[in-house]
């Protein structure tokens, strides 16, 4: 922990930090999702037997009906761009080297939207895209490098 002595001569402020770190587990449904992504490169979905809504990434429960989701199904990482943005600045306001194409993608066979990056010349809503996967995958959302145009 930094000692809190970085104050100015006029004693009007003190500087310091909050030394927090987080280590998140991916959870019960998340574990299934990342096993699937890592091992076979599929996007695992789960479907609510009551309202038929299909969640991807898969979830343990339906937020609409509150039922446990038990119908898991592997989906191909293929879909259509639902919406996108090109991000040109870093979080601190400086320009990015390469613009980031952030996108919501409607995966074929799913109802929920999937958030990831694109790597296409000119993004368009409705554009058909597929995931480009890393060769060595470790069970992370970045096992998908980006989605590219089909």
């Amino acid at each position: 922990m930094k000692e809190l002595k970085n104050h100015n001569d006029k004693l009007t402020f003190f500087s310091g930090n909050i030394p927090l770190e987080s280590l998140y587990t991916v959870g019960i449904a998340g574990d299934k999702f990342f096993q699937s992504l890592k091992n076979i490169g599929a996007l695992l979905s789960s479907k609510c037997s009551r309202c038929n809504y299909v969640y991807v990434p898969c979830r343990l429960f339906c937020e609409r009906c509150f039922d446990e989701l038990k119908e898991y199904k592997e989906l191909e990482p293929v879909g259509a761009v639902y919406s996108f943005s090109e991000v040109n600045i870093e979080r601190d306001g400086s320009p990015v080297k390469t613009p980031v194409q952030a996108a919501l993608i409607k995966i074929n066979g799913a109802d929920s939207l999937f958030y990831h990056r694109l790597n296409v010349k000119k993004p368009k809503i409705g554009m058909k895209v597929k995931a480009v996967l890393e060769k060595y995958r470790k069970g992370s959302i970045n096992d998908i490098r980006y989605f590219e145009e089909i």
Binding site: L20, E21, S22, L23, Y24, T25, V26, G30, D31, F34, Q35, G139, S140
Partner: peptide, 9 residues
């Protein structure tokens, strides 16, 4: 061996 995500704000 668990899948985890680390973050240091």
């Amino acid at each position: 061996r668990e899948f985890t995500v680390y973050y240091k704000p």
